[in-house]
Design a protein around this nucleic acid. Structure first.
Lengths: 147, 147
DNA sequence: AAATCTGGTTTCAACTTGAAACCGATTCTG
DNA sequence: CAGAATCGGTTTCAAGTTGAAACCAGATTT
């Protein structure tokens, strides 16, 4: 029986991360959470996904400790979903996805949303992979050492 | 009929990127490609996924311009898959996934593979989101401006 | 008190995934 | 050079996942 393959126990951090957020909806839910979305109905309206799928994804993200359920900020009896510290640390991943998409998935003049620094309203600087001393490193100058 | 929802035309670069690589296998195939894997059978052995799925994912990645088919380096009649320039630009995404996984998905003493700088054998520096002047910015200090 | 909104769960069909069998072309082996 | 093994897939089919829509209980609004 073809159970969903999992990499929970993988020695490769990329594999484990892909296992947790390597799914279109999870990534978009997290993106919306960074944009301040917190209620079930807001996620649903904004993403246009089926409620059962949203329900399942939110449950998974809470189970992973990426989101947590908190009482509604407006004092009502409803619940809200908020990023945990672990979830907020996904920010750099979202930024890397955004920057790659901007560079490779839009036509030169095609408009897209932009992520701006609140202080100066300027776009953020391009992420850069660097070595221990801060010098740029590209993929040919690094290798994975197996555990 | 529930056709696979797509965000090809989304105004949000994160959504478009998630559409292209937001899938467990694609991400792992790309990871392996960075590790120098290039042949169908190598990917299959290394990832342990079904051949039909691998075939389908490779086809998609080639269609997206992330991989390209090239003649085998050993002069045989077989083909190989190589990262394109667009594919190599995914490096920073892989690094961000790796670093988050290292920080949040392993127990303190649990071993995992590490990405090292070829020159000095040291781990790479932690990625940092910064503003236009290079100062660190966290998710609360940035916002998305819709197009 | 009735109507509506919220946050789901259930149901069921279509689609995707995965394992295994199969296959033609290429390469290795004796 | 014949036969065996490897390579790079495709086909088949069952099981799992996704999605739309209906449904529902509790909270809120009118």
């Amino acid at each position: 029986m073809p159970r969903r393959v999992t990499h929970e126990g993988a020695e490769c951090p990329v594999a484990r991360t892909a296992d947790v957020i390597g799914d279109r909806w999870s990534l978009l839910i997290i993106r919306d959470a960074f944009d301040g979305i917190s209620r079930f109905s807001e996620f649903q309206r904004n993403l246009g996904l089926a409620k059962n799928i949203l329900s399942s994804r939110l449950r998974d993200l809470v189970a992973q400790g990426i989101l947590e359920v908190v009482p509604a900020a407006d004092g009502s009896a409803y619940r809200e979903y908020a990023l945990t510290s672990k979830g907020r640390d996904l920010f750099v991943i979202l930024v890397s996805l955004r920057q790659w998409g901007e560079d490779h998935l839009f036509e030169p003049e095609e408009p897209h949303s932009v992520l701006l620094d609140t202080r100066d309203q300027q776009p953020l600087r391009k992420l850069e992979v660097t070595d221990a001393t801060g010098h740029p490193v590209d993929s040919t100058e690094a290798y994975v050492r197996k555990v």
